[in-house]
């Protein structure tokens, strides 16, 4: 789809030939429908689950100060771990559903799952966007979906990290389920691969959590900033699904 994107650094109108983008005239602005409802729903559910997972995961690795009273009166660590496991399993289900939607949804629903690694022009635009963030170029280009730099971050820092977290997380959960469990049969190979035991898996799972946290910080900042400074809408897009191009028609 990059081939269709305008190459003029300051395009005035939409390319409008994209089969998946639906161009709509709204006064002087253009809006296209980018994120379908399942994608938006997944985004927010996933965000919520990640918040829960990071918070609970943090305290599994570094537990809170001790609870008073008898052991039978409290189940704090148990609840925290339960929340972590429950959120983790929900996240896996949501992710699988999201993958399914990537097959049936519009082209934007597929974007985070791959990068056009062999496309030199795309890489050039990654550099252009990087320059925009470094204040080296006055304006970003316009994109219906993720801009190439965001796309790159979305694929590596988010998608790959998420897959890694899911696999290591399931492996750790499998260990808790025991060696005879189907979990262990399904995910024990992760322990063998990163092994010899789960000490290192714990460490890597936690390191990946930090990657995800850093991604979240950048993601939220970039979304807010782009909403204000770029030429297309960001946050509202993830609510309504429609991307507004602010300077169209000017």
């Amino acid at each position: 789809m990059y081939a269709e994107l305008p190459t003029d650094p300051r395009p005035r109108g939409l390319a409008g030939t994209d089969e998946a983008g639906v161009g709509v005239q709204l006064g002087q602005r253009t809006a296209i429908y980018v994120y379908e409802a399942p994608v938006r729903l997944w985004h927010w559910v996933n965000a919520l689950l990640i918040v829960v997972l990071i918070a609970t995961g943090f305290f599994i690795g570094r537990p809170l100060p001790s609870m008073p009273g008898e052991a039978s009166d409290a189940f704090l660590m148990g609840y925290i771990r339960f929340a972590h496991f429950a959120a983790g399993q929900a996240l896996v289900v949501a992710y699988l559903a999201r993958i399914f939607w990537a097959f049936v949804g519009n082209k934007h629903s597929r974007q985070i799952f791959y990068i056009p690694f062999w496309n030199a022009r795309w890489w050039k635009e990654v550099v252009w966007e990087a320059k925009w963030y470094l204040f080296l170029v006055p304006e970003p280009k316009k994109y219906e979906g993720h801009n190439p730099l965001a796309h790159l971050a979305m694929f590596t820092m988010f998608n790959l990290t998420l897959v890694f977290l899911i696999l290591t997380g399931c492996a750790l959960y499998a260990e808790g389920q025991g060696q005879g469990s189907w979990w262990f049969a399904a995910f024990g190979w992760v322990i063998d691969l990163l092994g010899p035991n789960t000490l290192w898996v714990h460490t890597l799972h936690r390191a990946a959590m930090w990657v995800m946290l850093v991604f979240a910080i950048i993601h939220i900042y970039a979304a807010i900033r782009e909403d204000i400074m770029s030429r297309q809408s960001m946050i509202s897009t993830m609510l309504s699904g429609e991307r507004m191009f602010k300077d169209d028609g000017q």
């Binding site: 930090w210 850093v214 400074m229």
Partner: peptide
């Protein structure tokens, strides 16, 4: 370990974000 490295990176990124936001605001 993962926490000391991750915490440091997150701190640096947060600081960078804040700085970037400042510069962006001035720029804008």
């Amino acid at each position: 370990n993962a926490d000391s490295i991750g915490g440091a990176v997150a701190g640096v990124v947060t600081a960078a974000v804040a700085a970037h936001a400042g510069v962006s605001a001035v720029h804008r």
